[in-house]
Design a binder for these strands. Structure first.
Length: 279
DNA sequence: ATGCCTCGCGTCGCGAGA
């Protein structure tokens, strides 16, 4: 199985490009972020013509997450337990949920398409929202892993955090002044690794960015950021046989500012991985 | 540099993105 994540920056502006890539790369399941539309506005026909079913979760022109899959999708959730909401200018609990998380199960694998809040600025209420959102997601992930020991889980999406200095190549992001690299954001990300999740791409693709700003020739200068990740539970990580950052998708006409990230998994219906080794 | 792109909205200026 080939599984991928991609912040598409408007699916209506990018459907042709996304479907072409899915077919060309033989992708089975794609988690998308920033579809920027409601489900009834999603360009379903182009996906269905290529053999993909779509589940979309979008509330308005902002955010929005979706899955496209050639395999059956079950157990759909449009938010994780404890997910906080946000409304600009509002404070306290009971702010409305945004369309930033979508969970499904495919072939026994629990997977989430996640669009972590941007943060906007170190002094902005959106940063507190981002940190709370990540902390709540980490708590729910820990709870889920304890309740489902040994079950494969993949958290994939746009995390809006550059976890190490090697992941930040955009000179406009300044330590002490900028989001994405601040110590609390990095701590919120590394808490997932502490909880037992594994970055399944980095060991196989040790360098490279997944995002380049549209402005200031960031892509030609390769001044990008690695902020899109696939984190897996141990059993999920054990099944990963390959990983790719599809850098070429930043080229050509009307690209997203993010590129897709994919992993290949050993076939789920053979039991080679469970067979005891005999010497 | 309050800038530089790109997108959606809703009518050409603004919020949001990272």
């Amino acid at each position: 199985m080939r599984l991928a994540t991609w912040n598409v920056n408007s699916i209506r502006a990018r459907a042709g490009r996304v479907v072409d890539w899915l077919v060309r790369e033989d992708v089975d399941v794609l988690g998308m972020q920033e579809i920027k539309c409601k489900p009834e506005q999603f360009p379903l026909d182009e996906f269905e013509a290529a053999g993909y079913d779509v589940i979309a979760h979008g509330l308005n022109q902002w955010n929005g997450v979706a899955f496209a899959s050639r395999l059956p999708m079950t157990d759909v959730e449009t938010a994780f337990a404890g997910q906080p909401g946000f409304l600009k200018g509002a404070e306290g609990p009971d702010q409305p949920l945004e369309a930033r998380a979508l969970g499904i199960t495919v072939d026994g694998i629990r997977m989430w398409s996640l669009y972590v809040p941007n943060g906007r600025g170190l002094d902005d209420p959106h940063l507190a929202y981002k940190l709370d959102w990540l902390a709540r997601l980490r708590e729910e992930t820990t709870r889920w892993m304890a309740a489902n020991p040994g079950s494969p889980l993949a958290l994939m999406g746009d995390w809006n955090v550059a976890p190490t200095d090697e992941d930040m190549g955009d000179p406009s992001f300044v330590p002490g002044l900028s989001t994405h690299i601040s110590p609390p954001e990095r701590a919120a990300f590394s808490a997932f690794l502490d909880a037992g999740l594994i970055d399944v791409v980095r060991p196989l693709v040790p360098t490279g960015y997944t995002f380049w700003d549209y402005k200031q020739l960031r892509f030609p200068r390769n001044e990008g950021m690695r902020i899109d990740f696939i984190l897996g539970s141990p059993t999920f990580a054990d099944s990963v046989t390959a990983a790719h950052i599809h850098r070429d998708e930043r080229k050509g006409d009307a690209p997203s500012d993010h590129v897709p990230v994919s992993v290949d998994l050993a076939a789920g219906d053979d039991d080679d991985l469970d067979r005891p080794m005999i010497f």
